[in-house]
Every structure is written in C-alpha cells, then in structure tokens.
Design a protein around this nucleic acid. Structure first.
Length: 624
RNA sequence: GCCAGGGUAGCUCAAUGGCAGAGCAAUGGUUUUGUAAACCAUAGGUUGGAGGUUCGAGCCCUCUCCCUGGCUCCA
C-alpha cells in the first residue's frame, strides 16, 4: 500500500474543499474551520457553527439570535456559491510561513491554532494557500488578516496539492452529498464539528455514473433485500440490535451452519456447547471486567452473586479445557462452538445485521503448545482461504494484522508477550505468502490478530472474520498442559471465527450475491408450478420425490396465471422453477427454468437432481 | 453515546393547518392458465408514542421511542 503521487482529480477535490470553506464562510461568517482533506471519490470540510453546547468558548452567536445550523437543505445553496466562485477563475497560490505569522493569520481560528501548535511541536514546516483573483494578487499580498473580507479571497493552512486555478474544475462534475457530525481530531472528548461531504470527478458523466452506482448499491443493501426476501426483521418490543430470523433466513443460516460444522469436523475440531450466562467471577478471571464491562449487558443480581449474559464464548470454553488435566499429547485441542453472545453496542453504531447486540459466532478455540502455534495459525489461515476463495469466491477484502496502539491502557500490560505474539503471527503470515497490512490500535485486549476486512454495499468497512493469538489466557485461567519433562507448561490459545457471526456474515452474503444465493444456500431451492388444476396430482408426485431427497421446495397451485407465478418466483430469486403440464405428464419430465437464464427445456427429474447435485459447495479437504 | 435527517396501510409513496389517498401485497369471487404482472369486489390507519399550540394538527412546538447517514466505539 504505497501512496500514489497526487493525481489531477485529487488536486481538484482538494481545491473544491477550499472553495467549500469559502462558500460556508460567506453564509456563516463566524464559522470556525477544521480540516478539509480529499477522500475516496471526493472531499470534506469540517466546521464549527456554534450549535455545540459542549464548547462554550468556541460558540458563535449569530446576529439574528436564530441558532446557526447547517443541514442538508442548505447544501444546494452552498453548491451554487461554489460554482459561482469557480466561474470567477480564482487562483491557488502557496506560501511558506513562520509560526508567528501563521498564528497571526489564524488568530480567530482555534482549530487552526491547534494544528499550528502540533506542527511546530513536530518540527514540520508550515505553509498556507491563498485562493484569490489573479489581478488582486498582483496588487497586494492577501495575507493581512483572516478570513479575508472579500468573497474572492481565502487563506487556509495547507500543505498544498492544488490545481492552478478554478478553470480546471468542471463545475458540473461535483456535488455536495451530505452533512455529518465529526469530533475534532477524531476524539470524542473534543467538540463535535459539522462535516460536509462532497464527491467530484473529471466529467459530469463520471459523476452521474457514480451517483447511479450508489443507487444500485442501495438496492443490494442487505436491509432492503433482507426485508424483500423475508430473511430477518426487527421488533421494537424485542429491542434494537436484536434481529429475528424469519423462516427463509433460518433456512439460510442452517444450511451455512450445517456445512460449516462438517468442514470443521474434517478439519479436526470437536464441538462443545455452553450456557448463555456466567457468574461475574468468570469475567473477572478473563479480564473482561474491567476491560470490557461497558459493552456487556448489565448483571443480573442473584443470591449467589452477579450473573452476566455472555459477550464472548472464550471463558466458557476455557473452563472446558480446564475440566481435565491435559497432556502434551492432547494438543492441539480444537474446540468449536456456535455460540450466541450479547454485547451492548452503542445505539448509534447499530446497522441492520452488520452491527447487532445479539449474535451467533462461528467460534472455536485452539489450545496448543508454543511449538505448534505457527502451524496451527497457518492452518486456520488456510481454512479462511478455503471459505473465501473456494466456497464463496470473495475477492473484495483485505487482511489486517491488528496490533495494539501506542496508548497502552486498553491492552494487557505484558510488553514481551505482545512482541512475541506479533512476531509469531508475522512469521506465519510471511510463510503463508498471503498479503496483509498492519494497523495499530486494532488488537484485542489479550492479543494481536489477523482480521478480514470487507466492505458493505454502501461502503461501510467491517471485520468479517478474525484469527487471534491469545498469550494471556493461560495465566488468567490457569490453562496448562503436562509436558514430556513432567512439568506444567502454558498453552497458547488461537481464537478464530472464519465466518465471524451469522448476522454479519449473512448480511455480507446477501450483498455479495445480491440475494441470488447459490442453490446450496437458497432458502427455497425450487418451486413447482402446475400449469392448471388438472396437473396438480403430477406436481404433487414431483414435490414428494424432491422433498424426500432433502430439497427445500414449494408447490404453488394454479390459482394465479403461470406468468404471474413465474414472475413472483423470479423476484424471490428462487434458483429453479419447475413447470409441469400435459407435455411433462406425458413424457414423465419437468420443464426447468433457471433463475435469470430462462427456460432450460424439459428433462427427467433425475437430470434435474443431477443439476442440483453439481451445485453443492466444494467438499472440504482436511489440512495436509 | 454525539451531530444531522427521517417515521403516513404489510411494502413503495401521495395529501397549503381544513373529509387521510394511490399502486403493489392481503382477503373473497370469477378465470384453469405454457415461461416476468388476468378480471371484479372487499378489507386495511389512534399518521411511531405522550403532551402542547389552534375553532381545527399527518403538517407547528416540547418530550420520548425507533430507523438512516456520519463521528466515536468495535474481543
């Protein structure tokens, strides 16, 4: 991931951010400016307009007493002003400045002063960029104070990367899209600014294509398809973030789970099952209290102490490891559980099935000796590869080695352990040859991990699968094995969930397949449509044969026209439609229509079953 | 949790502060159908909830619940 040299469109986007600031300052002269960088497809700029109650010293009072507020309704107005500025052919010019001069220029801009302080402390050079009329610029230097009074001049603290003048901007090829709150410097202790997002391209065509794509993506959104295909629902009475799985969704879940259990059986896992609650003692032992208490549902106070809903499966499974003495010969021990956990996620973070408060993980814990860690870790990576590549054909993801942040308070304080664990993972990854990026501040509190990052239809990034190395569990839970020399040795624990949680993974699969699931996952695999009432008996015999062969099928009687029933089945994205009438009865066949492909013609039932058999997922191969 | 926007029939959406509507779905009937929408009829609502302003509130105000877009968070 090396950084590309800035392209022209980046310079356009960056310059548009400056014009956005100019336009906002015209409407809100007292606005305080944050930063305005380019992002994928566009740019944004952060402003404080004075509506924030937390930051009295930064509050801006508007003259007419009405509260200053920036909503999406104002965006067209600001956009119009930006276009006007573009038409004036304003020029961008850079200038290196001393800290003193920078402080003077931005004396009424607290956030800019903040940045200047930071730059000076880091001994970075300071520069500013002016946006002015060329003629005006030749007469005088427009740097006397800030913000400059005319609508044609603007100076921003900026490291550069601009176009020469606004004639290079296509005024038809950008659009302000939405506003959002964003904490200054990304820290929730800081005041919240108003962020305006925009997109920009070289041509109007590209912009239109992008906007159309966004619209198409929304149609693939798992929340839209999940409702239309009757996969899941929510009920306010049950609670936010607590999905209810409808029959179609449950069929899908079960199909996935059944296959996953078979894969893991062949991969050397043994299944366990544990209760949904546990006493506080367990979570004190694990360290989840205090590290994780905020994200757990509050305790149930009972006679013998507090009980918690489990937010993770590991502590329970560790108790199973501890249930008997373990020998070096027993390892690696791979214990798998489809475990349902509850996490009290902050309300604003919930999103359909992608982020929920109750979910079921495709979880397992591998207990192994230090000399087995690398091989086991690699084996898990191969298992991930099997799922992503062989089973689902997912290519749009990246692997992230998640390490602790420099600020250590969220992570267990065992520097040597962290280094050793990170080195073990790095070595395994290098050996596997799989590409990955490293990211600080993303680790679990008990160890580093490899996360599989995917993007949802609307572009939100989530961790889909995880493979973690835990060097703390041994000490915390007293997890040891008797080695050859008769001494107790600590075990390493690998936490892994290649399918993450059903909820998130199925959300992703809905979007990946746009609801058109492969036959082995489809909630309903085929419908049988008798053309008329007279064909019902034959249709029923076809149904019985396929039902006993284990297919998920439905028979839909002739109370609607055939065209209507075909249309309905197609919109439900059912893989196969079997049509039976006089012709089929005579030839003892079924006419097969494949989803999206149309009529395949009449064939014997056995031929259809052969088609179904060929669409089975790959047979899992056990590791070498 | 924070900032902003939204919530009208099962779904998609209408309705200047003045009688709450359409299409699809549902239900009942007619039709018995040959590869993406037959026809007729019926029913469906405390406009998310509570309070307020008003002669009168889906519409204006306050609170609250839920959803959406971001931010923060994310074992």
């Amino acid at each position: 991931m090396k950084s590309q040299p800035p392209s022209k469109i980046d310079a356009v986007r960056h310059s548009l951010a400056h014009l956005l600031a100019m336009a906002v300052l015209k409407k809100f002269p007292d606005a305080k400016l944050g930063i305005g960088p380019t992002i994928e497809n566009g740019f944004y700029y952060d402003f404080l307009l004075g509506q924030n109650k937390k930051s009295k010293e930064l509050r801006v009072k508007s003259k007419d007493k009405s509260e200053e507020k920036l909503t999406e309704e104002i965006l067209p107005e600001i956009e119009k002003e930006m276009r006007r500025l573009i038409s004036e052919t304003l020029v961008f010019s850079g200038e290196k400045v001393t800290p003193q001069k920078a402080r003077a220029l931005f004396k009424s801009q607290p956030f800019k002063l903040d940045l200047i302080k930071e730059f000076v402390a880091a001994k970075k050079p300071l520069s500013v960029y002016h946006t002015t009329h060329e003629m005006r610029e030749s007469k005088r230097k427009p740097t006397t104070h800030y913000p400059l009074p005319t609508t044609h001049s603007f100076t921003d603290l900026c490291k550069g990367g601009h176009i020469r003048n606004t004639a290079e901007i296509n005024p038809e090829a950008f659009k302000l899209t939405h506003v959002a709150g964003a904490y200054w410097r990304g820290d929730e202790k800081n005041p919240m600014l108003t962020r305006i997002y925009g997109v920009a391209f070289d041509t109007k065509d590209e912009l239109d294509r992008y906007l159309l794509q966004q619209e198409e993506a929304r149609k693939r959104d798992h929340r839209v398809l999940g409702e239309r295909l009757k996969i899941f629902t929510f009920a306010p009475e049950v609670g936010p973030g607590l999905p209810l799985w409808l029959p179609n969704g449950t069929a899908l879940r079960d199909a996935l789970e059944q296959y996953a259990k078979d894969v893991e059986r062949r991969w050397g896992y043994r299944r366990v099952a544990t209760p949904h609650i546990a006493k506080e003692d367990l979570y004190r032992m694990s360290g989840h209290i205090p590290y994780y208490a905020e994200s757990m549902y509050p305790p149930m106070a009972l006679d013998d102490g507090n009980y918690y809903l489990k937010a993770m499966n590991c502590p329970h499974t560790h108790m199973i490891y501890r249930a008997e003495p373990r020998s070096w010969r027993d390892l690696p021990l791979r214990l798998a559980e489809y475990g349902t956990v509850y996490r009290y996620e902050r309300s604003g973070t919930l999103a359909g099935l992608l982020r929920v408060r109750g979910f079921t993980q495709n979880d397992a814990h591998i207990y192994c000796r230090e000399d087995q860690v690398e091989e086991e870790f690699m084996s898990v990576m191969r298992l991930h590869e099997f799922w992503y590549k062989d089973v689902f054909g997912i290519t749009d993801f990246y692997m992230r080695l998640s390490l602790p942040a420099k600020d250590k308070k969220k992570y267990a304080d065992v520097p040597a352990g962290w280094k050793k664990a990170a080195d073990l993972i790095r070595r395994a990854m290098e050996k596997s040859g799989l590409p990955y990026v490293e990211a600080e501040g993303e680790a679990a509190f008990y160890g580093p991990k490899i996360d599989f990052q995917i993007k949802s239809a609307i572009g939100r990034e989530e961790t889909c699968s995880t493979n973690q190395l835990d060097f703390l569990a041994s000490e915390r839970f007293g997890l040891v094995y008797k080695d050859k020399d008769g001494k107790d040795k600590p075990v390493y624990v690998i936490h892994r969930a290649p399918l993450g949680a059903h909820e998130r993974f199925i959300a992703f699969l809905i979007e990946h397949y746009a609801g058109a699931f492969p036959v082995w996952l489809a909630p309903v695999q085929a419908v049988i449509l008798p053309i008329g009432e007279a064909h019902r008996a034959y249709a029923t015999s076809v149904y019985d044969a396929l039902f006993s062969a284990g297919l998920r099928i439905e028979l839909r009687a002739a109370d609607e026209t055939l065209g209507k029933r075909i249309r309905t089945a197609e919109t439900e994205k059912i893989p196969y439609i079997l049509i039976v009438g006089d012709k089929e009865i005579e030839g003892r066949t079924v006419s097969v229509r494949e989803r999206g492909k149309g009529d395949l013609g009449a064939m014997p039932l056995a031929a259809f079953q052969e088609i179904i058999a060929q669409s089975a997922p790959p047979r899992p191969k056990p590791p070498a």
